[in-house]
Amino acid sequence: MRRSATPFLLLLLLAALLALPQVLPRFHTYVASIVLLTALLATSLNLAIGYTGLYQFGHAVFYGVGAYGTALVLTRSGMPAPVAFLVGPLAAAALSLVMGVICIRLSKLYFGMLQISLGSLVWAVVYRWYSFTGGDDGIHGIPLPDAIASPKGSYYFTLTVTALCVFAMYRIVRSPFGKVIQGIRDNPVRAAAIGVDVRLHQLASLVIAGFFGGVAGSLFVVVENSVFPDMMFWTFSLEVLIMCLLGGMYTFFGPLVGASVIVLLRVFASVHTQYWSLILGTILTLVIIFLPDGVLGRFVRRSLPKEDRGA
């Protein structure tokens, strides 16, 4: 029953999202844009961590590189905007490939730790390289094509791209490739024994996740008109990870829910308090204790024996 209701609910959601800027004030439209692109970011992370079972602890780096790639092309080259929107995600995918090749040999936690280290290296370069990346100031006032420069314009652009990318990822997890990476997650030994090149598929999954993370970064440029190094700092990676945990890593739409909740909370909290990390920590604690499968996972996940859990 739930299966047949899902497309209808999604259409309803899409219609609501289309109508949103018509009824919401400017600031809320802006917040909605951030929710959308962060939802895309969290879904892309989930491809690696939830569906492939790789401890992708440094995902924000791909988000940041996607954003910087787009921002740098827009500000420093005379190239047309569409090029900028390709360069960002492609740069993120390329970095993901390089980091993947280096990290993939390590198992589980070590993979994650090395990824954080390499990510911090990228962050440090961006943070220090004033002449190219603007250093810790970042880049501001990034020129955008008129059509997507207004809050409404950027919102609709973000909505379109996010919807297309999420749909693409939805197709991917239901493709042969998607099935295979889930098989690798659950039982890499069996996967290899049926002839699957485990590392190659893991690498492909990382590149795809990095690419879509980069797309989210490009959208950030459209919405914020600026980039800064902290968007690729490891603490933000952790925040995106919490979104996946909160929404449910074993559901496709869970991270969308998790991202919405966290972003809205952050916006709300920043008005009233400075203790965002305290709130985030509390959420994480509560999720781990009370919702190990996440909000959505709690409702839709088939019941399974305990020992099969864990990415």
């Binding site: 693409a168 197709r171 991917i172 239901r174 493709s175 042969p176 490739f177 998607g178 099935k179 295979v180 699957v196 598929h201 492909a204 795809i208």
Partner: peptide, 8 residues
């Protein structure tokens, strides 16, 4: 196994 868009 590298087909990423056709439904499985």
């Amino acid at each position: 196994t590298f087909r990423i868009f056709s439904p499985v």
